[in-house]
Amino acid sequence: MSATHDMQLLLAVVTILVLAMFLGFELITKVPPTLHTPLMSGSNAISGITLIGALSSGGVGQPEMATYLGMAAVIFATINVVGGYMVTNRMLEMFKSKAKK
């Protein structure tokens, strides 16, 4: 890959980063304080997105070490994803049941 191509790619990725940050600020300021704990556990689950990075690390032809690191990453990221979404759901259900009454 040429340096120009690398540069263009990087610029595109940085653009995405900046836009996502802004969007994040806009969205999160609208979350009421009463839901801040579920927000934290829910965003925790989202940060488990590293799981897709973990899955695609250490594939065919990679050193054994990379494969093991990748597998360890899969374990910890999965704890975050599964645990994070389940506990968030548990909390939010408690809030919802009151809303119906």
């Binding site: 980063l17 994040g24 965003s43 997105i49």
Partner: peptide, 14 residues
Amino acid sequence: NNLLIIAGSLVGAS
């Protein structure tokens, strides 16, 4: 990976 960047920055902002 764009998805990691988007999801990561949403959490970072939060």
